[in-house]
């Protein structure tokens, strides 16, 4: 297809306008977080901060224990990344390469879990967590998502494409199934594991509702939960809110900009298959 210069210019103009509308709110929020409260409320508004200040962040960390919330978010996300990498690949391997009775039924359960809305099971899950004495604990926040159906699905798709001969050869040599999995299959799963790690980290970092229900004291809050409490208590102190928003969004932004290749590949393939 031949394209004239003018058509190209129109496409670029459209894409640029779209980009301005999409990242505008982020840019505006980020710039505002470095303005003094007076300047945030000034009319007409300033785009670029006249006076740069870190006061908003200082006051924010003074009011809310964001350091703890940040650490909690990181710990929970890392634990979930570890459990999901291990379990999703194990389960995915079994569905892709092992023959066993009831396999199809079990795999259907993966799809069923994907279809169960969070709100529908949340209440009984909470009652269960309460019965187990896990309210306001890390384990209570972590447990329901230690292995996720999307991860199982992704790993199964990838492992299914690995050649069967690898496994047959190892079986002939007398290797057990767990040894085959850990020494032959897992080392080949680098790319999908990277994608899964990123998706899991993001999902955990951004997860709000379940941690908000389970975490009931400030020492257990994750970042989104802490920011939401701030949102409820300081609803009109926009200098604090925008600073909080920056603290929640910035780490993910860095992660995403550097690792986006894995992420977009993962989304595109799960969507297509």
């Amino acid at each position: 297809m031949r394209r004239t210069r003018r058509q190209h210019a129109i496409v670029y103009a459209g894409l640029t306008l779209g980009l301005a509308l999409v990242i505008g709110p982020f840019v505006w929020t980020a710039l505002s977080s470095f303005k003094p409260e007076r300047e945030i409320r000034r009319d007409p508004p300033t785009f670029w901060p006249e006076t740069w200040t870190l006061d908003n962040f200082a006051e924010l960390f003074d009011r809310v224990d964001l350091g703890t919330a940040f650490a909690n978010s990181v710990i929970i996300a890392l634990v979930l990344v570890a459990t999901n990498l291990l379990f999703c690949s194990m389960v995915g391997y079994a569905f892709a390469k092992l023959d066993f009775r009831g396999k199809n039924v079990a795999f259907a359960l993966v799809l069923v879990q994907l279809a169960i809305p969070a709100i529908v099971v949340m209440m009984p899950q909470f009652v269960l967590i309460a019965k187990l004495g896990m309210v306001n604990t890390f384990i209570g926040i972590i447990l329901p998502t230690v292995v996720t159906p999307l991860g199982v699905f992704m790993m199964r798709q990838f492992i299914a494409d690995l050649p069967d001969e690898l496994i047959h050869a190892a079986r002939v040599d007398g290797a057990g199934e767990f040894r085959i999995f850990f020494t032959i299959i897992l080392p080949l799963c680098g790319p999908p594991l990277a994608t899964l790690a990123l998706i899991t980290f993001l999902g955990s970092w951004n997860n709000f509702l379940w941690p908000a229900v389970v975490a009931q004291s400030e020492q257990m809050y994750t970042l989104p939960v802490a920011l939401n409490i701030l949102n409820g208590n300081e609803g009109t102190h926009y200098n604090l809110l925008v600073a909080g928003s920056v603290v929640v969004i910035a780490p993910i932004l860095f992660l995403f900009v550097f690792l986006q290749r894995y992420f977009i590949q993962g989304i595109a393939t799960t969507g297509l298959k």
Binding site: L223, S245, V248, I249
Partner: peptide, 8 residues
């Protein structure tokens, strides 16, 4: 990005 960050 986190829904809370965006909502704020």
């Amino acid at each position: 990005t986190s829904i809370i960050g965006i909502a704020v």
